[in-house]
Each structure stands twice: as C-alpha cells, then as structure tokens.
Design a protein around this nucleic acid. Structure first.
Length: 534
DNA sequence: TCATCTCCCACCTTTGAACTGC
DNA sequence: AGCAGTTCAAAGGTGGGAGATG
C-alpha cells in the first residue's frame, strides 16, 4: 500500500467532485472534463471542503485498454485480486484532516451477460445481487497528507463468487457487470464518524467497470492481463515465440508468438471498433460522477436484447448531473442545487429522469465523537467480521463499550449503478453504513427507488474492534511480521466468524451514506461541530 | 449438449528471514 | 554490536486445462 511512487501519475484520469450549482467551466476544464467546485454556503474554507478533493486514476491508459476490450475480472471462491489494480492519486485534501477511503462495487445494470461470437451479449436478467461489501483502505483513517503523499492502492481488494465468503472479500455474481466506486469519508475526532457531520464524496471511473467471470471469455483480455500483470509473466511467450501453454504437459499446442498475438489483437480491435462506430451503443443521458469527462457511449445497451460490443463503450456521456446534499439539523439531506450537465451539453432526456428528490430519510446519528485513537483500520473492513472472535475477548468488549465502533455495512439490496440503469430500474441508493454500533439501522426507503432494506446484521462489517486493534498512534502502516494487518490475526483455534455475526457490539448509532437513484451526493455538515481540520 | 464453475498445475513475483561482510 | 547488502525460501498471485456441475 501506498508504496507506489507518487510521481508515476502521468496520463491519468483526473476526477473531481462537483458539488455546486451553475458553475462556469474554463475552456481547459471543459475540455478535460474538470469542473470547478462552487462555493458551498456555510462550509468551511474552500480547501477544507471534501468536494475540493481531486482523484486521479492511476494507469488510466491501461484501464482504458482493458475497458475498450471489455474488462473482465476473475472471481474465485478464495478471492481474486483485480487487475489492473485500483490505484488513485489524491489531491486537494486538507493535510491535517483525517479521511477514510473505501471502495464498493455495485452492479452496473440488471443484466446477466454471456460471451458469444466474440461479443458480450445480454443473457437475461441479473441474479439477485449479493450483499454489498465495502473494502476500506487499510490505512484508513489517515490524514490528507498521508493520502496525498503517494498513490493510494487498493490492490489487495479481492473479488469472490462465494456467497458465504468469510473473509470479507467483495462478493459478486459471475457474468454480471459491475462498477467500482471510491468513497472518501471525512473522519475527524471532533466529528463523530456517523454523525450528521460526516461528509463524504464518491468518485467513479467508468473505465474501471468490468464483467465478473470465473474464467476469461475474451482472448484479448487474457492477453492484456498476461502482458501487463507481473504475476502472469509465466504465461508470456518468448520472442521466439511460444506461450507457456505450448509447453504444458508435453501436449502440442499452437505456437503463438507475441507478435502474432498482437496482430490478432489489432485485427480484433479493428473489427470491434467498427462495430462500435456503427452506433450499437447510442448515447444515453446518464448521471455520472463529476470525475468523468471523456465523451462516449454508455456501458451497456439498454436494449437488453441487443448484443453489446465487446468493447466496453468509451462511455463518456456529456450529460453528467451532480447532486449535493448537506446534512441539516433534522438529519435530512439538503440538496445544494448542484444539478448540471457535465459539459453543459443538452440532454436527450428530461432532467427529471435523473434529478430526483433528495432522500427524505432520517439517519440515526451518533452522539459519540469520532475518536481517532480508537480507530485505525489496518485492513479492509473485510476482516471486521471475524474480528469479533479473533481478538482479546473481554478487552475487546470493553473497547467496544467505551469507544464507538465503526461498521461499514453495505447497501442491503444492491441495485444497478445509475449509469446503466437507464430503464427506470429502481436504483438502490448506496447505503454504506458507518456505524458505531451493531444496531440495526433503520433505513428509510428512498422516495424514488423502493429501497428494500435489511438489517445490518446481514451485511459486511467494519467494526471498531477490528479497527482498534493494531492501532498505532503514529498512524498507518503498521503491520505484523506476516504482512497482514494485526486485525487479520485470530486466536489459534478461533474459527472465522461469518461477517454478519457482530452481535457483540454495542449499539450507539449509525450514519448512512446514501446515494439516491441517479445521483451522487455529498454530505456535509451544516450544524453542530464543523469539520475540525486541526 | 452446452455453458459455466471448480480444482489443480506450473510459473512467476513479492516478501521477509537468514546469512554474510564490513 | 550494529548496519547494509545479498541470498534464499515461503507465500501468494497468475492463467490454462481437465473434469465436474447444473
């Protein structure tokens, strides 16, 4: 983690959160898809606003290569890393403010796909989504200075198709399309994590969308993985020519040189590019985060019967809308009136299609201040669940009693990412719960999206017990000799605890981070203590 | 029969402990 | 004794293939 050179940020995808109303884009900003962050009333200094944070996708060109071919990610029972790995460069953070970085992966649409005739095609309706899980960056919470110091890598994030996965890996369905999202949550000791003061923002890089598979379908993706993933070096052929497969088991396999592979890829690419240009994927107005600025077509064709290109569309829809919400005294989100199309281009669909009323739910809010010394995630929340039995028993219980815990619970009913939900499919808001308790948080359905909630106990957990262990006042990076974060360890003989079992935690409160249908939102504090960027 | 999944394999990188020399 | 550099082995990641599964 965070060991990448910060300098290696060339040619990357810059994203930036837009939170305001009508903003004027400078020419260069328009061209690049950058947007200005308008003034947010009653906020603190501009440089302290979470909406000023810029996120740059590392190795964007590589991501684009995969995206153009139709990114596939292997999912296995034991969990498989993503490649390319999700790495970002952060700027615009307040150096002294602490942030929590986390990733979730949401369905891109409600289709199941199959790879047929060298193309991804819709093969039916999606299977019920798995309980969503968050991957919290192991360095969280960390100061802005820490996050900005170097690349933030989520390379240890793992994907699984094991619905009963006890390790906290992100559970996906095979042959479904997904969209990773990065969430930045402000966490300060004077702003209870989970209180009405909690601000966050969400960044989405459309080129990181992928279809989950148990074995690669598209040969081009296979070759891209082999050529770019160092762990797959063994599958690279020498210049003389042979792929490793030709050596396997003494069987005769066709000898394929790298150059031949390249030629095939180029050929395939040209073929597919032609199809893409034929307008298979007509542009649809859609809502994206403000961080996307290329032009292109949607990731999937709303026409469920039409084949989609092998390419993941160069989906850069100019019609990007932003929603900003601010927590009010009553706990409701206050919309800041930041709706706008991304590049000020016309939309083919009325704004109502995307712009919906802010959620009118009441978030159970915390009264406990966020105690930084008590929270130091040394590993993703994926380990939180098992932690209840792994740690120091009674001591842990005390910890839980005396200090707020954090749960990163997931949205209970995962709905397609708005980008692809163009067919009026009810979209479940992102409902990551940062909870300092094990209490089931009441979840009020979004007025526009028929939210079906389940108790948090069904979901993944990011708990304080896990977070507290291994906490170093001097902050992140501490690892045990095995390289695992401390909380990863269990007592000998301690069985892994299913992630949904966290009944031992105390109940204090919950904060919900919600992402209403077709919206991105930014929660900001407008009452109580302000962000204290000490 | 077919599409998909699971398991195992060989090969590779990464990581950290052990060793060596100064 | 302490430090830095090197070596080595274990752990873990990778895609491919065979067989299993539904």
């Amino acid at each position: 983690m965070l060991q990448e050179k910060a300098s290696a940020v060339t040619d990357e995808h810059v994203s930036r959160l837009q939170t305001g109303g009508e903003t004027d884009l400078l020419p260069d900003q328009s061209r690049l898809g950058l947007s200005t962050a308008p003034t947010v009333p009653s906020s603190t200094e501009p440089d302290q606003n979470i909406e000023n944070i810029k996120v740059v996708l590392h190795e964007r060109e590589l991501w684009k290569k995969f995206h153009e071919a139709g990114t596939e990610m292997i999912i296995t029972k034991a969990g498989r890393r993503m490649f390319p790995s999700y790495k970002v460069k952060m700027t615009g953070m307040n150096p002294k403010t602490k942030y929590i970085l986390l990733i979730d992966i949401v369905p891109a649409d409600d289709h199941r796909y199959k790879f047929c005739d060298n193309k991804w095609m819709v093969a039916g309706k999606a299977e019920p989504a798995m309980p969503g899980r968050l991957y919290v960056h192991p360095d969280s919470p960390a100061t802005g200075a820490h996050w900005m110091r170097q690349l933030v890598s989520f390379q240890k994030l793992k994907l699984t198709n094991n619905h009963l996965d006890p390790f906290g890996h992100i559970i996906l369905n095979s042959m479904h399309k997904y969209q990773p999202r990065l969430h930045i949550v402000k966490a300060d000791e004077n702003n209870a994590f989970g209180s009405k003061n909690t601000a966050y923002c969400t960044h989405v890089f459309h080129e990181t969308a992928f279809i989950s598979v148990t074995s690669y379908q598209n040969h081009k993706i296979t070759q891209l993985k082999i050529e770019n993933n160092p762990f797959a070096k063994g599958f690279r052929g020498s210049e003389e020519g042979d792929l490793r497969v030709s050596r396997l088991q003494g069987k005769e396999y066709p000898v394929i040189s790298k150059s031949m592979v390249r030629q095939r890829l180029i050929s395939t690419h040209s073929h597919l590019a032609g199809k893409l240009g034929a307008g298979v994927l007509a542009g649809h107005p859609q809502v994206l985060s403000s961080y996307q600025y290329d032009t292109g077509v949607p990731l999937s064709n709303p026409d469920s019967q039409d084949p989609i290109s092998t390419h993941f569309p160069q989906s850069r829809d100019p019609n990007l809308l932003y929603h900003c919400f601010k927590h009010r005294d009553n706990g409701r989100h206050l919309e800041l009136g930041c709706k706008r199309s991304y590049l000020e281009t016309s939309t083919a669909v009325s704004d109502e299609h995307y712009f919906r009323s802010p959620p009118s739910y009441e978030s159970p809010l915390l009264s406990h201040p966020y105690r930084t010394e008590a929270i130091a995630s040394r590993e993703a929340c994926m380990y939180g669940g098992m932690e209840t039995e792994s740690g120091s028993g009674a001591a842990d219980a005390d910890d839980l009693t005396n200090s707020p815990s954090i749960n990163c619970n997931m949205w209970a009913t995962v709905q397609p990412y708005p980008r692809y939900g163009m067919e009026g499919v009810p979209y479940q808001p992102f409902t990551a719960h940062f909870t300092n308790s094990a209490t089931v948080a009441p979840m009020v359905p979004h007025p526009a999206s028929s939210v079906v909630s389940r108790p948090q106990a069904d979901l993944g957990v990011y708990n304080s017990a896990a977070v507290q262990r291994g906490l170093s006042p001097s902050f992140p990076g501490s690892r045990d000799s095995s390289g695992h974060p401390p909380l990863y360890h269990r007592k000998p003989g301690s069985p892994l605890l299913p992630h949904r079992d966290f009944s031992s935690y105390s109940a204090q409160g919950t904060i919900s981070i919600r992402e209403p249908a077709y919206q991105y939102q930014v929660g900001l504090s407008s009452t109580g203590s302000n962000w204290t960027d000490s």
